[in-house]
Amino acid sequence: MNKFLRALNSFWLVSLLPILISFALAIYLYRLKFGGELSSDSSDWSNFGSYIGGVFGPLVSFVTLLAVLKTVYLQRELLDTQRDEFKSMQDLQKATFDSQQEALKQAAEMARQDQYHRTLEHLLSMIDRHSVLYGNIVGRLSQSLDVMANWAFEGKPVREEHLVKLAAKNERHKRTLTNLTMLAIDLSQSNFASIEELRVFYRLEMQKIFAAESVKDESDSEQSVRAGQAAAVDSGE
């Protein structure tokens, strides 16, 4: 707006200068032609007024027309400038909005990744607990089988069906332990689309692993270990 006013004022200043020069030149030529003294006759003044009006009327009208055209041009430039500034402001606001949306998406993705890794760590810890449990069971069964095998080698009485049952349970638990280890590897190396997909995969795979493992089987395993130890003690006595 200030630029518009400065340009308009400069135009008027430049326009008034030739008008003043023309006015001075017209007075000089009039006095040169008709004399330089003031007349007391009203008709002379009337003729002088007609002369001034005839000289300056078209000039002033022309300058006024130029001023109107200049004003319209400057207003159009002002409108174009305002439109460009408004568009620049809109572009800046859009860029700011897009950057904020991108920052929100990144924050949401980081939160999802963090929750995903926490869920994965929790599931891996659950698998590790099961692995430790079955590792202990396999260790006890293997120890009992070794003791009973030594007794059989030494000729001590050992019930063969009990030894076969313990060996079968031990092999089944070893397979379960191996499957748990493979499941932990699969969970660590696979990329799941969502946490729910991760949990569903974990639940289905655990169901498959423990399909052959019932509560009764686990109880039998513990009882078999204790029975084997008791039989070993009886044979030693």
Score class of each variant (00 low, 15 high):
1 M>R: 04
12 W>A: 15
12 W>H: 12
15 S>M: 06
17 L>Y: 06
18 P>F: 09
24 A>R: 03
24 A>P: 00
25 L>K: 03
27 I>V: 15
29 L>Y: 09
29 L>F: 15
30 Y>D: 08
31 R>L: 13
31 R>E: 11
32 L>Y: 14
33 K>L: 13
36 G>V: 07
37 E>G: 06
40 S>R: 09
40 S>H: 07
44 D>W: 11
44 D>P: 07
46 S>Q: 06
59 L>V: 14
59 L>E: 06
63 V>T: 06
66 L>T: 03
67 A>C: 02
68 V>N: 02
71 T>S: 13
72 V>F: 11
73 Y>D: 10
75 Q>P: 00
77 E>M: 01
78 L>K: 13
83 R>H: 07
83 R>Q: 14
84 D>L: 13
85 E>D: 10
86 F>M: 10
87 K>Q: 13
87 K>P: 00
88 S>Y: 05
88 S>T: 11
88 S>L: 09
89 M>F: 09
90 Q>F: 11
95 A>T: 03
96 T>C: 06
96 T>A: 09
97 F>W: 10
99 S>V: 06
99 S>P: 00
99 S>W: 00
101 Q>L: 08
102 E>V: 00
105 K>V: 01
105 K>H: 08
108 A>S: 02
109 E>A: 09
109 E>L: 08
110 M>G: 00
115 Q>C: 01
116 Y>I: 05
118 R>L: 08
120 L>C: 05
120 L>E: 07
135 G>L: 02
135 G>K: 02
135 G>E: 12
137 I>N: 12
137 I>P: 03
141 L>R: 10
142 S>D: 14
143 Q>C: 07
143 Q>V: 02
144 S>Q: 08
145 L>S: 13
146 D>H: 11
149 A>E: 12
153 F>P: 00
155 G>L: 10
155 G>E: 08
157 P>W: 09
162 H>V: 13
167 A>G: 05
169 K>H: 15
174 K>V: 12
177 L>G: 06
178 T>N: 14
180 L>R: 01
186 D>R: 11
186 D>M: 06
190 S>I: 04
191 N>V: 13
192 F>V: 14
193 A>D: 15
201 F>H: 13
205 E>V: 00
210 F>E: 14
211 A>S: 12
213 E>A: 01
213 E>M: 10
214 S>K: 03
217 D>M: 15
218 E>H: 08
218 E>S: 05
220 D>Y: 05
222 E>R: 15
222 E>P: 01
226 R>G: 00
231 A>I: 08
236 G>W: 14
